[in-house]
């Protein structure tokens, strides 16, 4: 049955390559090894979202039982989103779990993940901290997501205030990413973030 997995991935790969989404730059797929068990996906941040202009890399692992079981996918690019862990990149998406259907393909899955970036599901969060901010201070959430997109995914919007606060903590000897996480978690209140980092 591993045979069916490799055969199908090969077929899907060809189809993705010919698809208009690849032509339009919305998604990309790349092989990682010769055994077709691991691939690298790429999606463009959808327009009119804080992820716009960013490029997000995804790790795709194809189980031996594919397509009867879903591929294992996580974000390799750090992202601030209620349904993605800001730490591990794990994605909370029903079709990657119990709603998986054998007729779904890597192409439709990548498009679904892209759609998730446009429409978060804060009621089914993967990252509780992010989800809380998303619900309670949507404007701050938007800025934070934009900032992460700028720093980690090559997005265009640099947020001066945030950059400055991160730099302040770096100057205090804190690791850059750690500083960013702490500030993002405490709604960019320098004092609370510092307190947490030094406690």
């Amino acid at each position: 049955m591993a045979n069916i997995a490799a055969k199908r991935i090969k077929r899907e790969f060809k189809e993705v390559m010919k698809s208009e989404e690849v032509a339009g730059g919305a998604i990309k797929l790349e092989l990682v090894n010769d055994s077709w068990t691991e691939l690298k996906g790429q999606i463009a941040g959808p327009p009119d979202t804080p992820y716009e202009g960013g490029t997000f890399l995804l790790e795709i692992k194809v189980p031996e039982t594919y397509p009867f079981n879903p591929p294992k996918i996580r974000f390799m690019t750090k992202i601030w989103h209620p349904n993605v862990s800001s730490v591990t990149g794990a994605i909370c998406l029903d079709i990657l779990k119990d709603q998986w259907a054998a007729a779904l393909t890597l192409r439709t899955v990548l498009l679904s993940i892209q759609a998730l970036l446009s429409a978060a599901e804060p009621n089914d969060p993967q990252d509780a901290v992010v989800a809380k901010q998303y619900r309670e201070s949507p404007q701050l959430f938007n800025l934070t997501a934009k900032h992460w997109t700028n720093v980690y995914a090559g997005g265009p919007s640099s947020i001066f205030d945030f950059n400055q606060k991160v730099q302040l903590l770096i100057d205090m000897g804190i690791d850059e990413h750690q500083a960013r996480v702490a500030l993002s978690t405490y709604d960019w209140e320098l004092e609370r973030a510092t307190e947490q980092l030094f406690s």
Binding site: T108, Q114, A115, A119
Partner: peptide, 16 residues
């Protein structure tokens, strides 16, 4: 979520 993208997907697949 899945529904949206699936309909998107099939729409583009059947687009002339």
């Amino acid at each position: 979520m899945a529904e949206t993208s699936e309909s998107q997907a099939s729409a583009s697949a059947s687009a002339p």
